[in-house]
Amino acid sequence: MKNALGSVDSVLLLGGRSEIGLAIVERLVRDGARRVVLAARGEAEEAAVRLKNLGAEVCLLDFDAARPETHGEVIDSAVEFAGDLDVVVAAFGVLGDQASYEADPVSAARSMAVNLGGHVSAGLFAARRLREQGHGALVVFSSVAGVRVRRANFVYGAAKAGLDGFAQGLGDALHGSGARVMVVRPGFVVGRMTEGMPPAPMATTPGAVADATVRGLRDGSETVWVPGKLRPIFTLMRALPRSVWRRMPR
C-alpha cells in the first residue's frame, strides 16, 4: 500500500531491463519498496542482484510485449508474488530508425505492435487488477514525440501519440476506482536507447526522468513532463503551422 508519506511496498516493472524503468524501481526500493517484479524479455539478473542488495525481494518474469495473449498471465504471476501491486511501470518500447521503417514497412508495423499494441493489452490487464484492489498507479511512458508527431520520426511518434491517448482514456476509465494512470512525457533522453544520437535541445537523462516520475507518484500527478519546461513549449509547438512543423529537422 502507498503510505501516508507516499512510499510504496510493491512495484512491477514491465520492460524489466529498461534504463528509466530500473532507475524508477531503484528509487522506490530506496524509499521502502520491498517486493519487486521485473518482467522482461531476456536477462535481467544483473538488475535483480542490484535491487536485492538494496533490500528488495525480486521476482523475474518472462515478458514479451509483442505477445499480448501472454500479458494476463504476467500480471497474475506478479500478483501471486507481490500481492497488491502498488505501482506498475510500463517502460518497454523500441525506438528504431525512421528511414529503416520507411524502407521496411513490416518492421514499422512490428514496432507499433510493441510500442502501442503491447501497452494496450498489458495496460488493460494491469488496470483490471488495480481496479479490483482499489488502489495503485500505472505509469505509462508517452513522449513529446507523440504530443505532436514529427515527420522525422512519425512511426515512433504515432505509436506514442496513440499510447498517450490510450493512457489518458484508461486513466479516465479508472477515475473513482482508487487506481490511477500517470502519463510521463519525457523529451529526448540521453541513454542506452538513444546511444550514438546527438542529443536534442533540452535533453534529459534516465535519472532525471525517474526523479520526476517518483515525485509525480508521490504527489498523485496525472501528467508529468520531463523537463517540466517542455509543457509550455509544447503548448506553443502544437500551435505552429504545418508548413513550419514539417520542416522540424528531427
Partner: peptide, 9 residues
C-alpha cells in the same frame, strides 16, 4: 483521522 492515503471500499 490524519486524512492521508484514501482508498475506496
Amino acid at each position: 483521522w490524519g486524512r492521508t492515503a484514501p482508498t475506496p471500499a
